[in-house]
Write a protein that binds this DNA or RNA. Structure first.
Lengths: 225, 225
DNA sequence: CGTGGACTTGAAATCCATCAACACAAGTGG
DNA sequence: CCACTTGTGTTGATGGATTTCAAGTCCACG
């Protein structure tokens, strides 16, 4: 489901993607309603995306429906970079989302002198993704439920810029599928953190959180050696 | 623990690493005895390595000793590529191992025209690592013990070139730490596969396996959608 | 006001981890 | 050559963390 913005292509907030792409390619903005699929695993990888507003999940599925979310993408994040012909995972909007779009072809292959800088940027981007994936493997393979949730909260906190009040863009099931747990277990882990007064859930909306004791959360996070 | 080969630097079997590095840098071979550490997490990332013979594990540790092995590296594989100043994980030899070594500095930054090809190779390398990490996150987050072991056997089988008889270079604990399980669970999963006649363990050495029914193993592997 | 989605909480079941015993092969040193 | 140790792997019994099943609450929204 793809909805072109009525206002037409815009150039807002595309710093990184534009830098990667140089002047050679069209960047246009697209808008997706909540829960719209942006692309599916196995589809031809035509575009690279950068989130302008909203939030995106990328994930893989097993045949019976089990899902593993690789990453959440917040404003500024680039996703959908592929080396091969097709996307290796699916992506969809978890909120109403606006993204910048660049043609994939421009990013790989046939580089000339003045383009080598782009590749270096691209390399940094992929390397950061790899780094995140390595950290996440440690979490999925070896951390307990409470540790996973603590790690998750700190990650989100940092990416959002450690505001006093944090608003999560995703529901409990998405968190669970990101952390390799069930939504009930996520809920219970949050309850534990609440009881220990490490976090507070402010009033009505259960996705609005305050990290009361980041130090204690970091200790639960179990930092690697 | 680092042992320079008596025969001095060699150029055997360094195809890929040499191609990445061009002619500008020295490649020398080093040898590590079984269980020797090649580098540790957090150390300055001075070198990039390529396995000539033997096998290497790369892994992260939590403060209390829990370990997650990211990957096993077999002959031909390159590891230790870093964008930052330090290694993000540790690496050690799981057998007597010979590696080719290239200075890291040569690989990042300050690229000129004729070097852009190297970066592209490098990009492909990092992308393949990322792809593997994404698949492994799905395994760690969502697969059952038997599924994990089946996936592991097929992965090794393919990488070794699907010989009729497979000899695993790592022990059960390493497999467990790669799959996010305990060694007992790995042992039991192998017992299940043996009872179902999907694999056979040939005689004395318990690391010598035959994949009797790759199709059935692949079905257990649960292929993503 | 009623319905449905999101979340929490409790009880029971399950898968895997932990604890423990044992088998076996390869060294090591008397 | 044999006793002893050590490393590796298997298997059984038990326990525990998480999942599964099942209510039930609270909002948001028509």
């Amino acid at each position: 489901m793809l909805v072109r913005l009525k206002s037409g292509p815009q150039k807002l907030n595309e710093g990184h993607l534009a830098a990667l792409a140089g002047d050679r390619l069209m960047c246009s903005d697209f808008q997706y309603p909540k829960l719209a699929e942006i692309f599916g695993e196995g589809e031809p990888a035509e575009y690279v995306y950068q989130v302008t507003s909203g939030a995106v999940r990328t994930y893989k599925l097993l045949a019976d429906g089990r899902r593993q979310i690789n990453a959440f993408h917040l404003p500024g994040d680039i996703f959908g970079i592929e080396n091969g012909e097709v996307y290796r995972f699916s992506a969809d909007a978890i909120q109403a989302t606006t993204v910048g779009v660049a043609r994939r072809l421009s990013l790989f292959g046939g580089f000339t002198q003045r383009e080598s800088g782009f590749t270096t940027n691209l390399l940094g981007l992929v390397t950061r993704n790899l780094q995140h994936a390595e950290d996440h493997m440690l979490l999925l393979g070896r951390k307990t439920a409470v540790e996973r949730v603590a790690t998750f909260l700190l990650e989100m906190d940092e990416r959002i810029g450690s505001p006093s009040v944090m608003i999560l863009p995703m529901n409990r099931r998405d968190i669970a599928d990101y952390l390799g747990l069930t939504l009930e277990t996520v809920s219970r882990a949050l309850a534990v953190l609440r009881k220990r007064s490490l976090i507070r859930v402010t009033g009505g909306n259960l996705r609005v959180l305050v990290l009361v004791d980041r130090g204690a959360l970091a200790k639960l996070d179990q930092m690697d050696l």
